[in-house]
Amino acid sequence: MTGWWSFLAIFKRELLGYFATPLAFIFIVIFLMLSGIFTFYLGDFYQRGQADLQSFFTFHPWLYLILVPAIAMRLWAEERRSGTIELIMTLPVSRWIWVAGKFAAGWVFIGLNLLLTFPMWLTVNYLGSPDNGVILAGYLGSWLMAGGFLAISCCMSALSKSQVIAFVMSLLVCFLFTMSGYTMVLDVFYGWAPLWMIDAIASISFLNHFDSITKGVISLQDILYFVSVIVAWLTANTLLIALNKAE
């Protein structure tokens, strides 16, 4: 029970931490602007003439690729740089509660960003009559995928004292996870690698799992995929903190 209260305290602190500086607001503005630009200019929202948010969701992986590492980079790197890691690791709270609390705060912050894109939903409902179930699925899938990006970025943040290094490392790993489903990457393996290996590489891609969700197909498999990505990276995060907290 104490663990739950500690989790809440950590969650609250981290979430408010985003709003302690104007950073959160700048962030929200950038998120909304970019998602608008992607949807209307790159996604040909109007030209497609379809009442759905496909062109909105398609660009989310790329949006997250840049923005999520930026949200997560301070989470652990800053604790280590300022020395507060010593304070928090000597409080009677399990390490995984810290990891979960920080992750949850970041995830909710991203969720808030997503919620604030509601004018997009209003627009498409005003212009036509879309299948709102599919849109809801898209939002859920997007949030789940953001969780995957965030878990990777949290873990990378625990690697270094420097937020910049944390950001670059997160970007790199997230990029690999996104790209692994693209033919561009898979082409490298075709011809010599066994089929099961190519399938395995393709199946760890965020894109493949995200695509089917945005089309309105929420399969248990895709949800499980994102949940296990999150759990795996957060477990690695916990181990990393236990290992190299002193350096």
Binding site: T2, W5, G17, A20, S82, G83, L91, V93
Partner: peptide, 25 residues
């Protein structure tokens, strides 16, 4: 009290102590 007394700079004193108290249950 760790060396250099690290604490969260962005919090107020009250917020910080409330946070520690909450964590301690």
């Amino acid at each position: 009290l760790p060396e250099g007394a690290p604490s969260y700079g962005d919090m107020t004193v009250k917020q910080f102590l409330d946070f520690i108290a909450a964590i301690r249950g």
